[in-house]
C-alpha cells in the first residue's frame, strides 16, 4: 500500500512533528507510515484524511501486489 502523506504534508507545509501532534501519535509513527513500514489503523487513516481534508482513498492506495 502506498500513500501520499508526504505530498499532502508538503502542500500544507507541516512537519512530521506537527502532523504527529495533530494526529496524536509519535513522529516515528508518521515516519513509518510515510516510508510504508507501518500500515495505520482505520481510525488513524481517517484522522489523517480529516487533517488533510482529503478522502482516505486519496491518501492511501492499494498497489498491484496488495
Amino acid at each position: 500500500m502506498k500513500n501520499t502523506i508526504k505530498v499532502e504534508r508538503a502542500k500544507k507545509d507541516i512537519t512530521q512533528e506537527k502532523l504527529a501532534e495533530l494526529a496524536e501519535v509519535s513522529r516515528q509513527t508518521i515516519n513509518s507510515i510515510e516510508k510504508n513500514r507501518y500500515v495505520p489503523s482505520t481510525v488513524l487513516a481517517l484522522r489523517l484524511s480529516r487533517i488533510f481534508g482529503v478522502t482516505v482513498n486519496e491518501l492511501f492506495m492499494l498497489e498491484d501486489d496488495d
Binding site: 496524536e24 501519535v25 509519535s26 489503523s41 481510525v43
Partner: peptide, 9 residues
Amino acid sequence: RIEDEMIMH
C-alpha cells in the same frame, strides 16, 4: 513515554 498504535503493534 509516548504510547500509540504502532508502539502497541
